[in-house]
Amino acid sequence: MAETRYSKEHEWIRLDGEVATVGISDYAQSQLGDIVFVEVPEKGRKLTKGGEAAVVESVKAASEVYAPVSGEVTEGNAALTANPALVNSAAQGDGWFFRMKVANKAELAELMDEAAYQAYIKGLG
């Protein structure tokens, strides 16, 4: 099982071979409340670390989702278009946002591991 790493902006990323899957954390979905719309990047889009990659909307909040690392999108999760509630029910599973080919694996090391992230969100109160 590949390791899940987290950004301070609450994105998670899991590398499996050359391709990583990205989504928002379970904590993030619980903070946003009922997700009503997700816009995922199209295949081929080049992302830079920290740049805007996707949009997630709850009823009265819209948030950008940033690329946790640089790379190229290989697939957006089409299931979210029809069923954005997947982000609420399975943020770190079927509710993933997109998959990407990672440009520089070293960037992953700059992200938090599970324990560090749990400590981080605890600190947010």
């Binding site: 902006e9 609450h10 994105e11 928002i24 993030a28 903070q31 946003l32 409340g33 009922d34 997630v56 709850s58 009823v59 009265k60 909040a61 819209a62 948030s63 950008e64 989702v65 940033y66």
Partner: peptide
């Protein structure tokens, strides 16, 4: 994520 504030009416 950059979150804007808002409140929903939730029945």
């Amino acid at each position: 994520m950059d979150k804007s504030q808002g409140r929903i009416s939730r029945p």
